[in-house]
């Protein structure tokens, strides 16, 4: 790197060197969370509609299923509740990221995120953390309502449920990064976003006990262990180490692969000159 140009000098109070340390990043994370919270509060109808839609979907499943096959529903109700919880968490985390990229491109703010001294990937990671936090809060509310409606009780040890829930959702975040990257490169891929939601249902309900290799797919192992922890009341430290290992490897693997794909796609978009286009 040559340096023919003069070094930067702060001037007249308008400029101040960026703090990109952990403290600065914490400040960014706080700003992202505050922004989401402000928008949730400012547009309550939109926020409430999201909750009501999820709840209605569950009610249709529960009462509809009870009317058609009451015995089957009673036998699998715990599985349905855990599966529905994981599905709502996954959708919120996945869609929060992929839709967010699309909306930011539409708003013209995507390039502003890219030009952050924290780096584009880290800014998107901060937004993802905010998404996941929000999805866990909304998931807790939905779970409470589901238990209230069905009259069931479940083991909700936070030391077990939260870590497994986070690891279970991680592959969905990875897939969110993949689709976020594809949205940057190819723009209008909303129809593909919708399809993934149905794929998630299949993955969460996958018969892992029957076909053990399925545990390496996204969400499958998380769904299984979350069911074991919540419905059967097995604590984290009592779960088989090997099964937890699979959960950890798939969580980290899909997350890292998704993040790498996101990075590749944004570079691809910049090479093609379509970053921020919509």
């Amino acid at each position: 790197m040559s340096s023919n140009t003069a070094p930067a000098t702060p001037t007249a109070g308008l400029t101040h060197d960026a703090d990109t340390s952990i403290r600065g990043y914490a400040e960014l994370l706080r700003a992202v969370i505050v922004k989401r919270f402000l928008l949730m509060v400012r547009y309550p109808v939109n926020t409430i509609t999201q909750y009501v839609t999820l709840l209605l979907l569950f009610l249709v499943m529960f009462y509809g299923g009870s009317a058609i096959a009451p015995a089957a529903i009673t036998e699998t109700l715990d599985g349905i509740i855990v599966g529905f919880l994981l599905w709502s968490l996954s959708i919120a985390s996945y869609a929060g990221l992929s839709w967010n990229v699309t909306r930011e491109a539409q708003w013209g703010t995507l390039e502003q995120l890219f030009m952050s001294p924290f780096g584009f990937g880290r800014v998107m990671a901060a937004k993802t953390v905010a998404n996941v936090l929000e999805s866990f809060v909304s998931g807790t509310i939905i779970l409470g309502l589901m238990l209230l409606i069905t009259g069931r009780t479940m083991s909700l040890d936070p030391l077990t449920v939260i870590p497994i829930g986070l690891l279970a959702v991680a592959p969905a975040i990875g897939i969110g990064f993949v689709f976020g990257g594809l949205a940057i490169r190819f723009k209008r891929i909303e129809n593909a976003f919708q399809l993934v939601q149905f794929v998630f249902i299949g993955l969460i309900a996958a018969p892992v006990d029957q076909y053990p290799l399925l545990k390496w797919l996204p969400l499958t192992q998380g769904s299984r262990l979350l069911h074991t922890a919540m419905a059967d009341g097995v604590a984290l430290w009592n779960l088989p180490t090997g099964e937890l290992g699979v959960l950890l490897v798939t969580a980290v693997g899909y997350l890292v692969a998704g993040y790498a794909t996101f990075g590749y796609c944004q570079r691809w978009a910049r090479r093609e000159g379509v970053m921020g286009h919509y």
């Binding site: 101040h16 960026a18 703090d19 990109t20 600065g24 400040e27 960014l28 706080r30 700003a31 992202v32 505050v34 922004k35 402000l38 928008l39 400012r42 547009y43 708003w107 013209g108 703010t109 390039e111 502003q112 995120l113 030009m115 952050s116 001294p117 924290f118 800014v123 921020g276």
Partner: peptide, 30 residues
Amino acid sequence: GAMLEGARNIYWKLTVRENLAYFAALGGQP
């Protein structure tokens, strides 16, 4: 910094002050 698309590159649902705070954080400003 860059203002590439005029008024498009800010958040219309946030207030002026909230926008300024958000973009300052994005720029790593204490």
